[in-house]
Simulated scan of single mutants.
Amino acid sequence: GAAAHSRRSSEALNMAFTYCCDVAATSAAVEAIVNSSAALCLDLEWDSHDPNTPLSLIQAATGTGTGTGTGQPFLLDVVRVPSAAAVNVSRMSSLGEIIASQHPVAMHAAAQDRLVLQRHGIALVNLFDTQIAHELLTGARRKSLRDVLQHWLGIDISKGGELMRRFMQTPHAWTSRPLPDYVLDYAAEDVRHLPQLYATMKAEAERRGADVLDQILVLSRGDRVSAAAASAAKYTATIKWFDRK
């Protein structure tokens, strides 16, 4: 099988990523991920944004959010390595276990991703959804990752333009192989800046008070708080947020 390869876009040095498309490379990537104490930043790709279609790609990045804040993305090809979410590593038996543990996980607009992971038997326990955090911290609703990165970090990411638009409209595009380089670039950008974004937003939530961070985590998990808890003042914003849905 094809080995993992690291590549850099001819346009910019910060476009590096590691594409893992065999078992050995995927195992090495998963081991690097689970050995990191930093938050795990994730995104998933599948066809038609339908949680019932097969998972195609897992994008993962870890990082402290300090310095440049960018994470080195790992692109785990689930089509070529179907066991990518359950690769044996020395510290944990699977990537799924760390996702389902108390280890912090950051994603953007994760509602559909949560459903896909649930279908694979993985429940997100400690999820920080940066779209939900943006809504609670700014009042702006349902903003794209590009909008949120621009607001919090002043970073403008490319989302592939016309080529990517055509790709997304093509049936079964995410399960076809090989994936074009511009698609891999697009996928890597979905997680590259998430470590810095997560660190920045979490710090702001904590600055405003532990209750704010609690609300973000509750909503990120998709939980609806109990009627008793809903009457408590600290959940007022949470209930108002649900009422707007």
Rank of each mutant, 00 (worst) to 15 (best):
L137S: 04
R80D: 06
A100W: 09
M92I: 15
A84V: 01
R166V: 12
L136R: 10
V78E: 03
T130F: 07
M164Q: 14
Y186M: 08
G154E: 02
S90I: 10
W152V: 11
P73A: 02
T68K: 12
S94A: 14
Q131A: 13
D129A: 11
R114Y: 02
D129G: 09
G139Y: 05
A173F: 11
G69T: 10
L127I: 03
T138C: 01
V148G: 03
A187I: 09
E135F: 07
S158W: 12
A173W: 13
R91L: 14
P171K: 00
P73F: 03
A106F: 07
A85Q: 01
G160Y: 07
F167L: 10
M107H: 08
G67T: 12
K159L: 09
L75Q: 02
M92W: 15
R146Q: 15
S83M: 13
A140P: 02
A84S: 13
A100R: 10
I155D: 11
Q59C: 04
L184G: 06
R141V: 10
V116P: 05
L163S: 15
L163C: 13
Y186L: 03
G69S: 12
S94Y: 03
G71K: 05
L145P: 07
I155A: 09
S83R: 08
N126W: 00
T66S: 12
M168P: 06
D156Q: 15
R80A: 09
Y182I: 01
M107A: 15
R146I: 07
V183R: 04
V87W: 00
G63W: 01
K159P: 13
V79P: 01
A60I: 06
F128E: 04
A140K: 14
P180G: 06
E189P: 05
S83P: 09
E162G: 07
L115S: 05
R91D: 13
H151C: 07
G160S: 13
K143Y: 09
P178R: 02
D129C: 03
I58F: 01
V87C: 09
R114C: 04
T66N: 11
G65V: 06
H151K: 11
D181N: 10
A110G: 02
I58W: 02
L76W: 00
L149V: 10
